[in-house]
Computed example of a mutant assay.
Amino acid sequence: MENQQAIFFQTIKAALPEYQNMALSIAEELGISTNEAYKKIRGDSNLTLQQIIKLSDSFNVPFVYSPKQSLSVTFNYLSVNEDLNMVNYLKDLLDNLQTIKNSKQKHITITTDDIPVFHFFKYPELTSFKLFFWANSVNNFEVPFNSTFLSDEIIEISKTLHATYLEIPSTEIWSKDTITGTLEQIRYAFEAGHLNDTELAVKIVEQVKYCLTDMNMYAIGSKKTIDPNHTFNWYNCDVLGSIAYLVDFKDRMACYNRFNTFNYLRTEDQSYCLQTRKWMQGLIMKSVSFSGQGEKHRNKYLYSAFSECDKLLQEIGQAQG
């Protein structure tokens, strides 16, 4: 219990803003003295089950317990119902991202064969299409897509998600086909008649190109904003195997594995996260760097990606003619 309690408090500490005193916050939430709060933080006094639940709810951090010799891993996930409430989905995503951003030390490593969604969120039409495609992956395209698919609220949340991600140091490992998934979704929707507005289809493809241009700028400076703390490292690896997000804090890690097209499983099981980190580090060793001085390889990759975009634009233009 002592070890799990120490890890629990480390998790809480990592989630708090720098200006917030943990002992005072614990004392306030549990209705105890600051002295007693310090005893619990040091492990001199055990938390009760009710106190664990209260702290977990208050600071939005899990208390993870795994029996000795257990090989099981506990995951949490956002349950999206049949009507796919995108507002709740994006709000949950934003809560997770803002918790990461507000942590004292943080870094996200992403392995992906699809462009990370946070880059899409800068562009309303591309965001609308991507979420439309996800939603209809289970509803089998009941209605055609148009630019009014998403509400103003969702667009605003998406823009906040994009801005928040830019402020978190990150490493992205893309496969050689990372651009292909989104382009194939656009091609399928257009050819099947789910995206029947030609001008809108062209605009969506153009916004994919804008995303790639953004990536190029981030890679050139090895940062996502003018703030040097918002570092960015970009790699290309031919074979990845899965889409995973690893959040590395000073004292703990959290792992997110994507499933069912758009959803994710989340765990803070440190053994699992450590294995994931070692796997990602191995991928980086086998990857080509696109950041900083990796101009030659980056330009070759982007040239191929832009060519794929232009090919799709040509197909759309020929269909219109």
Score class of each variant (00 low, 15 high):
17 P>W: 00
20 Q>W: 15
25 S>G: 06
30 L>I: 05
30 L>C: 02
31 G>D: 00
35 N>K: 15
38 Y>D: 03
40 K>A: 01
44 D>Q: 13
57 D>A: 12
62 P>I: 05
64 V>A: 05
67 P>W: 07
67 P>F: 06
67 P>H: 03
72 S>C: 15
72 S>N: 07
78 L>M: 08
78 L>A: 12
81 N>P: 14
85 N>G: 08
87 V>T: 06
90 L>Q: 12
95 D>N: 15
97 L>I: 07
98 Q>L: 11
99 T>I: 15
102 N>E: 06
109 T>M: 03
114 D>W: 07
122 K>W: 11
123 Y>I: 12
125 E>L: 08
126 L>W: 06
128 S>C: 00
130 K>R: 12
132 F>K: 01
141 F>Y: 03
148 T>D: 04
149 F>L: 08
155 I>V: 10
157 I>K: 01
164 T>P: 07
166 L>F: 09
167 E>K: 07
173 I>D: 06
181 G>L: 14
181 G>C: 14
183 L>C: 06
190 F>H: 13
196 N>W: 05
199 E>L: 14
201 A>C: 10
203 K>I: 13
203 K>M: 14
213 T>C: 06
215 M>Q: 12
218 Y>P: 04
220 I>F: 05
232 F>E: 03
234 W>E: 07
239 V>P: 03
240 L>D: 07
243 I>T: 10
256 Y>Q: 05
258 R>I: 14
259 F>M: 09
268 E>L: 06
271 S>D: 14
272 Y>P: 13
280 M>D: 01
283 L>H: 14
287 S>H: 11
288 V>A: 14
290 F>E: 11
297 H>V: 14
300 K>I: 10
301 Y>D: 09
303 Y>W: 15
304 S>R: 03
305 A>P: 02
305 A>M: 08
